[in-house]
């Protein structure tokens, strides 16, 4: 039982953001593909802003190696990330509509699963999977807004992480080069900084601001 009514919760957000902006956040629908260090942090930022509807997708389960940077708790180890994150997000924002899918996105299922969501966030960890999703979305759904990320590993300055508008409806966040394949660690704050770039670009798109 939430300790705050839907109306009270919404009024608190509108008091912070202004009525006009909150109305846009309320009406927004976003799909987040991958719920690791990027996706789980993007999701938290979006529900805190009051985005009305989220689709969260990941085939994986919560592992001990995730706890340094991902928005899960030790008592959720072994559970599907989609389900565990949905619970955590509903504790933050009890009235958000969240569709959770514990499945692997592929060339075949991407167009159908992502069709209802005007804004898509790429938040995978593997480079080939990132490329697969980005290509599939740009090839088959050119009307979508797509925000992706590449390069957030290591201990280099977080100031290297940027958002770049690649084309009209495609933005890329990250430093562009720091690769886990080179043995670099994934550290909470730097990964979260990149996730915050993705989340903020998504909120800007919702607000009608399309420049990076």
């Amino acid at each position: 039982m939430a300790a705050i009514t839907k109306e009270e919760f919404r009024a608190a957000l509108a008091a912070r953001h202004g009525e006009e902006l909150q109305r846009k956040f309320d009406a927004a629908s976003v799909a987040i593909c991958g719920l690791g260090g990027l996706g789980s942090n993007v999701a938290v930022s979006l529900v805190r802003a009051g985005v009305g509807r989220l689709c969260i997708i990941d085939f994986d389960t919560v592992d001990t190696s995730n706890l340094n940077r991902q928005q899960y708790f030790p008592d959720q180890l072994g559970r599907p990330k989609a389900e565990a994150l949905r619970e955590n997000l509903l504790r933050i924002a009890p009235y958000c509509q969240i569709e959770a899918h514990a499945l692997r996105l592929t060339d075949e299922n991407i167009p159908e699963l992502l069709a209802p969501y005007p804004i898509i966030c790429e938040a995978f960890d593997r480079a080939d999977q990132k490329a697969m999703l980005v290509n599939r979305v740009l090839e088959t759904m050119p009307e979508k807004y797509l925000v992706a990320a590449s390069g957030m590993a290591g201990v280099s300055s977080a100031n290297e992480i940027q958002t770049r508008r690649v084309s009209k409806r495609f933005w890329l966040c990250g430093d562009g080069h720091s690769d886990v394949a080179e043995g670099l660690p994934l550290i909470s704050a730097r990964v979260a900084a990149c996730a915050a770039h993705e989340a903020h670009m998504i909120l800007r798109i919702i607000a009608g601001e399309l420049e990076a």
Binding site: G37, A127, K130, E139, L172, S178, V191
Partner: peptide, 28 residues
């Protein structure tokens, strides 16, 4: 405009064209 993966071998780049290659690295 996106170049479809299946068209990489057939798509010829002409004088004055602008190509953007987004290359992904691992981590997330």
């Amino acid at each position: 405009e996106i170049v479809f993966k299946a068209q990489y071998d057939q798509t010829v780049i002409k004088d004055g064209d602008s190509v953007e290659v987004v290359s992904f690295v691992g981590g997330g």
